[in-house]
Design a protein around this nucleic acid. Structure first.
Length: 265
DNA sequence: AACAGGCTCAACCGCCCGGAA
DNA sequence: ATTCCGGGCGGTTGAGCCTGT
């Protein structure tokens, strides 16, 4: 650690004096404590002066990042849930790499965390499929295979969790109007924003209160019972047959994808 | 047990934007 | 109108951990 921290200092001659003052690299417990204490007493913002006043030899940016991504009390860490994964896929298909915007709809998750999830999990699959993450091919795979699979697994999870989970469903379980989750009513394809809005609003409103309240089974109707039927509707860019052909053409790749989807899910 | 390769994620970088001076 | 500064954002890096051999 000592080595790493000393290595982290700038080493150019002109910057030597600065390097003595400005620390970089991993934060120590003491620094975290100092930052948290200062923010508790004075609030956040004006990060450069905050850093100075708090006696932290860090850049303002570093302090801000540490606070927002790690120290903030409402930061949630740990595994991204199935529901969160689905939401990320959905929102990313709408907004692209607007991580902070996506993060706003996943309470407690930081843009950094979502970005990392996307890069390590989602991009990995694009790589395995030998296609670009922004290609239509990969987006179709996500839309027609990955996301339905996620919904399927979420349902299965809800079913196996049994009455206990059911009991935690809020009295007014969101049905999201007449909308069911399928690609055509997702804003990915259709102009309607209703699914995304409803879903994200629901997540935002309920997730911080009780995680159990947030599960997609509540707004899934019979169309989700058979994802393959529900997800390859008429008029889609890719028909079920085309999708199957495309996947089968991949041979091992398709098997790998399914396995990976299960792994990731 | 030791090693290599892959993966994760905290942290940094560079760019951009908006507001104040 | 211009410059400066704080803050936000997406992209990238690399140390440490994990896993397979």
């Amino acid at each position: 650690m000592e080595q790493m921290q000393s290595k982290a200092y700038n080493q150019s001659s002109d910057q030597e004096e600065m390097a003595d003052l400005i620390r970089r690299g991993p934060w120590t417990v003491e620094e975290d404590f100092t930052l948290m204490n200062y923010i508790a007493r004075h609030g956040e913002g004006r990060w450069n002066s905050l850093s100075r006043c708090a006696g932290l030899n860090r850049t303002g940016k570093s302090c801000r990042l540490r606070w927002l991504n790690y120290l903030r009390p409402d930061v949630r860490r740990g595994n991204i849930t199935l529901e969160e994964q689905l939401l990320i896929l959905e929102l990313h298909s709408r907004w692209g790499n607007r991580w902070s915007k996506i993060a706003q709809h996943l309470p407690g998750r930081t843009d950094n965390e979502i970005k990392n999830y996307w890069r390590t999990r989602v991009q990995k699959h694009a790589k395995q499929l030998k296609c670009d993450v922004n290609s239509k091919q990969f987006k179709d795979t996500m839309r027609y295979l990955w996301m339905p699979r996620l919904v399927e697994r979420i349902q299965a999870q809800a079913a196996t969790s049994g009455a206990g989970a059911a009991a935690s469903v809020p009295p007014q379980a969101p049905v999201f109007g007449a909308h069911t989750y399928s690609p055509e009513n997702s804003s990915v394809v259709a102009s309607s924003d209703s699914f995304g809005t409803d879903l994200t609003d629901y997540c935002y409103n309920n997730y911080p209160v009780n995680q159990d309240y947030y599960h997609l089974s509540n707004y899934a109707d019979q169309s989700l019972i058979s994802p393959t039927a529900a997800y390859f509707p008429q008029g889609m860019d890719l028909t079920a047959e085309e999708s199957c052909q495309w996947m089968n053409a991949g041979g091992d790749i398709s098997d790998t994808l399914w396995n990976d989807i299960d792994d990731v899910c």
